[in-house]
Amino acid sequence: MNPVQRTVFRTVVVLMGMFAFAFALVPLYDAFCKVTGINGKVGDQPRSIVNEQVDTSRYVTVQFITRSGKGLPWQLEAEHRQVRVHPGQPTEVNFAFSNNSSKALTGRAVPSVSPSQASLHLRKVQCFCFEEQRLEAGERLEVPLVFQLTRDLPPDINTVTLVYTLYPVADSQSQLQAQTLPVRGGDV
């Protein structure tokens, strides 16, 4: 290899590396968000309850907001608008999905947490947001959300808001995604 070829070879290697890096950034960013709580992202895997001393000295208000996205004729409702819990205390709240249309449809509730730092201190044990839901025409489905706020929740956070936005899932889409994007989590 003459020196020019060597230089070109090296730059091309760097180039391909950077192109791959761009795609690697997608899962890296996801992981980074979950570790640091950026964007209020919560893990999409169930976690188990940790038995820790319940901090009875303070109350935290947990609000539930459900929103309907476009193109899914469903209603999602929380049993309670908000609950007051102690950090460390496992809590169960029921949510009801109903499909008011005359077709069977698949949908997903996309979660978000505010303030975003709180997502680091939220342990979801059971959540309908971990998976897609399929509802027959006119079906109503009650599903629980079981969560626990960790004891080390920063003292200045007194309200945690959990937001769920409903989105339709096209049947073909969910499969395609699992193929092209295995990194985004096996539960898609």
Binding site: S68, G69, K70, G71, L72, P73, S101, Y167
Partner: peptide, 18 residues
Amino acid sequence: IDVVLNGVSGTPMAAYRG
């Protein structure tokens, strides 16, 4: 009714049910 209540995904038509 469906379009007004539930919107159309991928277009600016929002779901007005909420």
